[in-house]
């Protein structure tokens, strides 16, 4: 799959933003007044900034309002509804803290859970795709949730929670990669089933239907850069999980905490890039590629 920068940015920053909103909503930290204002601005910048970035890949963003209508079947529609609900509920909760110095607990808990709901519905957009066997697995939503929770805890300065979640996340990511590498073959879709010609013999793509490229090849067949995947995986684990945990355990001044956050974000950006670049869509088989 083509690793579109807008989608990578959306997944990374919205995940962090909604993670932070979850911890704020749950009352793990209860700032008031100006401090609360700053916390909520950070969370909304990440969450909403990511959502706005995600509209850059739409052909007609001006019609986005229509995307709220098909929640009965579409995970993208559910994600949109969940996001609007979470952002409004958390805005009310935030206003209570900023302006009245009171914690409207119900709004916090409901808004916090809805924030996680956004992350879950996002992940299901990918996990539902039967056409991309690597994504179609419980590890996809699990990783999205863990990343959002751990990144949010890191931003919120919850050292113990962040450290534990980061360790769990690192282990789960290694498991997800290991099992994901086999899933395309296990899914059983190959050139023989794609063409139905397997009963005659071994199928090879002889001539593509067009001399140039097309939308399908640009969107679904991304083989460039995959050869660096192994190094990138090591860098990802190091930056997203190991280094932040080490930094958190070392000391607790603001500079080091900021370094941990920056390292984590860089690692998650690489992780998201891999999530797309390494995901193989079955349509590639028609072009003799994976």
């Amino acid at each position: 799959m083509h690793p579109a920068p807008s989608v990578i940015i959306f997944n990374t920053f919205s995940g962090l933003g909604f993670g932070l909103l979850f911890w704020l909503g749950m009352g793990v930290l209860v700032p008031t007044g100006w401090a609360a204002f700053i916390w909520f601005v950070i969370a909304y910048l990440f969450a909403v900034g990511g959502l706005i970035a995600s509209t850059f890949h739409l052909g007609h963003p001006e019609r986005a309002i229509k995307a709220f209508s098909q929640w009965k079947t579409s995970w993208l529609s559910r994600e949109g509804i969940c996001a609007v609900f979470a952002l409004i509920t958390m805005a009310i909760y935030g206003a209570g803290l900023v302006f009245a110095g009171t914690r409207l607990g119900v709004f916090g808990v409901v808004g916090g859970l809805a924030s996680l709901g956004v992350v879950f519905t996002t992940s299901m957009i990918y996990a539902q795709m039967k056409t991309v066997p690597r994504w179609r697995h419980w590890t996809t939503p699990a990783m999205y949730l863990i990343l959002s929770l751990s990144g949010g805890a890191l931003l919120a300065g919850q050292i113990k929670i962040a450290a534990v979640l980061l360790i769990v996340g690192g282990v789960l990511q290694i498991f997800a990669w290991g099992t994901g590498d086999r899933r395309f073959v296990e899914a059983g879709t190959d050139m023989e089933s794609a063409t139905g010609l397997g009963h005659i013999g071994k199928v090879r793509a002889f001539e593509p239907p067009h001399t140039g490229t097309n939308y399908l090849m640009r969107e679904f067949i991304h083989v460039v850069g995959r050869k660096h995947a192994d190094q990138l995986r090591i860098i990802t684990i190091g930056l997203a999980f190991v280094l932040p945990v080490v930094l958190l355990l070392l000391a607790s001044n603001h500079l080091i905490a900021a370094l941990a956050v920056i390292s984590h974000i860089a690692g998650v950006l690489a992780l998201r890039w891999l999530f797309f670049a390494q995901a193989e869509h079955v349509v590639g088989l028609y072009y003799g590629k994976r």
Binding site: A67, L76, V132, F220
Partner: peptide, 24 residues
């Protein structure tokens, strides 16, 4: 009604849908 999100093309295993680059 189409917002050009491309998800339907992702879901099609056969590559039967193409997002038009001019019209979105």
């Amino acid at each position: 009604d189409c917002i050009g999100c491309g998800l339907c093309a992702w879901a099609c295993p056969y590559g039967a849908r193409e997002l038009d680059a001019n019209e979105g």
